[in-house]
Computed example of a mutant assay.
Amino acid sequence: MSRVWHISGANTGFGLELALKALSEGDRVIAAVRTLSKVPDSLNRDDVKILQFDLSWSQGEMNEYAKKAFAAFGQLDVLVNNAAYSYMGAIEESEDAAVKAQYDINVFAPLRLIRAVLPHLRDQGSGTIINFSSVGGLMSGPANGIYCSTKFALEGLTQALAAEIAPFGLKALVVEPGYFRTSFLSAVTSGTNIAPALDVYEGTPAHDARKAFFAYDGNQRGNPVEGVKRIWEYVADEGLLKGKEKLGKLPLGSDTGSVLRLVAKDLEHTADMYEEVWKSTDFPEGQ
């Protein structure tokens, strides 16, 4: 059965590759983009509806947009909150206005869109919401704390959302890509989305991480074409995901897999090391 995917940021990177994968499988796509003139020719086809979309819209504007999105093909089966950006720099280097803008786009925008579509999905009785997190939603790092904190927030929202909407036959998934070879880091390496450097951090992990962004850009190990295949397979129950338990997290990339295991070990070590401590803070049983 043909599905309808709504993909934000569908004109580039992961969003575009996911749109093309869905189309290749006979699905239809609502391509939500901010700038219509930047839509590639590969999306100018009858099974794609291109809608202008802005992550800065208010809740009221999102509600009106949701009506338009559902009317495009008469249904919406998979909502993909993909569009986001990274604001890099040490915590002390970060600027308040830039941090607020990062949260508005990476956290509040998908939250507003989710609120807008949920009444329609409930009426429909089916649907999957996919929120793009990151390896940075599992573990934060120097010069990446602001961006990672937005992904930590999205992880928490999605986990709660999945439990809340399950009674209505709806699902929620968080996708956790590692470093994939897209243009995601280009805004950082071009100097657009990186905080002004403080000299005091030179020679520390914060500025070493800054240099690493430049080394990673264009050399990421992750292949976005393969990454989107796994996302489609999760939804379709095909390929490598066929018959597998559909968990609430979908890690993508060897780096994410390694971090996932590292975080699990760290949590277990912390629980073991402080077992006496955390047990000591309860009331005695029966009180």
Rank of each mutant, 00 (worst) to 15 (best):
L55A: 04
S56W: 08
W57Q: 04
S58Q: 13
E64P: 13
Y65R: 13
A66D: 06
K68C: 08
A69Y: 00
F73I: 00
D77I: 06
D77W: 07
V78D: 06
L79C: 13
N82C: 07
Y85I: 09
S86E: 14
Y87A: 05
M88E: 10
M88K: 06
G89A: 06
G89D: 08
A90W: 09
I91T: 15
I91F: 14
E95D: 15
D96Y: 15
A97S: 14
A97R: 04
A98M: 15
K100G: 07
A101T: 12
A101M: 12
D104Q: 02
V107C: 03
V107M: 03
A109D: 08
L111N: 10
R112E: 01
R112T: 00
L113C: 08
I114Q: 02
R115Y: 11
V117R: 00
L118T: 13
H120F: 14
L121D: 04
R122L: 14
R122T: 14
R122M: 14
D123G: 15
Q124M: 10
G127Y: 03
I129V: 13
N131M: 01
F132Y: 09
S133M: 06
S133C: 05
V135R: 08
G137K: 03
M139P: 13
M139Q: 15
S140C: 10
S140F: 09
G141N: 01
P142A: 09
A143F: 10
A143E: 12
N144E: 04
N144G: 06
N144Q: 11
N144P: 10
N144H: 11
N144I: 04
N144K: 03
G145S: 13
G145A: 14
Y147L: 04
K151A: 05
L154A: 04
L154G: 02
